Amino acid sequence: VKVFRALYTFEPRTPDELYFEEGDIIYITDMSDTNWWKGTSKGRTGLIPSNYVAEQ
C-alpha cells in the first residue's frame, strides 16, 4: 500500500470510480494499470486517475 495526496478534486463518471477532493489522502492498493489505480479514501474504495495524485 502506498500513500498519495489528491492534487485535484475528482468527480466519478462511473460507479467504479472514487470521488475525492483536493488534499485528500488516498491509500493505493493496485497500480497494475498505468492510468487508473485502485485506492481507498474516507472508507470508500474505487478507481482513481493516476495523474490526479502525488506520492507522499
Rank of each mutant, 00 (worst) to 15 (best):
V1M: 13
V1F: 14
K2I: 08
K2F: 12
K2H: 11
K2A: 09
V3K: 11
V3C: 14
V3E: 09
F4A: 05
F4L: 04
R5V: 15
R5K: 15
R5D: 01
R5G: 02
A6T: 01
A6L: 04
A6H: 01
A6I: 02
L7S: 04
L7T: 04
Y8K: 13
Y8F: 12
Y8N: 06
Y8G: 06
T9K: 11
T9D: 10
T9W: 04
T9G: 08
F10M: 05
F10K: 04
E11M: 15
E11N: 14
E11S: 13
P12A: 11
R13M: 11
R13E: 09
T14E: 09
T14A: 11
T14W: 11
P15N: 10
P15T: 10
P15M: 09
P15F: 08
D16K: 11
D16Q: 12
D16I: 08
D16T: 09
D16Y: 13
D16C: 10
D16G: 12
E17I: 04
E17H: 12
E17F: 11
L18C: 02
L18G: 00
L18T: 01
Y19M: 08
Y19H: 09
Y19P: 13
Y19L: 05
F20Q: 00
E21H: 09
E22T: 10
E22N: 05
E22D: 05
E22F: 08
G23Q: 03
G23M: 03
G23P: 00
D24L: 03
I25G: 01
I25H: 05
I26H: 00
I26C: 03
I26E: 00
I26G: 00
I26K: 00
Y27D: 05
Y27E: 10
Y27K: 05
Y27N: 06
Y27V: 11
Y27W: 11
I28F: 01
I28M: 08
I28S: 00
I28P: 00
I28K: 00
T29E: 09
T29A: 06
T29G: 05
D30G: 05
D30Q: 06
D30F: 05
D30I: 04
M31D: 09
M31P: 04
S32L: 10
S32F: 07
D33E: 07
D33P: 05
D33N: 11
T34Q: 14
T34A: 15
T34P: 15
T34E: 14
N35C: 15
N35R: 13
N35I: 14
W36A: 03
W36T: 05
W36Y: 07
W36N: 03
W37E: 00
W37S: 00
K38V: 15
G39L: 02
G39K: 01
T40Y: 15
T40H: 14
T40A: 08
S41K: 05
S41F: 12
S41E: 02
K42E: 08
K42W: 06
G43N: 07
G43A: 04
G43Q: 04
G43C: 07
G43M: 04
R44N: 09
T45R: 08
T45L: 07
T45C: 10
T45I: 10
G46T: 01
G46Y: 03
G46W: 03
G46V: 02
G46S: 00
L47M: 12
L47C: 08
L47R: 09
L47N: 06
L47I: 09
I48M: 03
P49E: 03
P49R: 07
S50W: 07
S50D: 03
S50C: 12
N51P: 06
N51D: 12
N51Y: 10
Y52I: 07
Y52D: 02
V53H: 02
V53N: 01
V53T: 02
V53R: 01
A54N: 06
A54P: 02
A54S: 13
A54C: 13
E55G: 07
E55M: 12
E55N: 07
E55D: 09
E55R: 09
E55P: 14
E55L: 13
E55A: 13
Q56F: 15
Q56R: 09
Q56H: 14
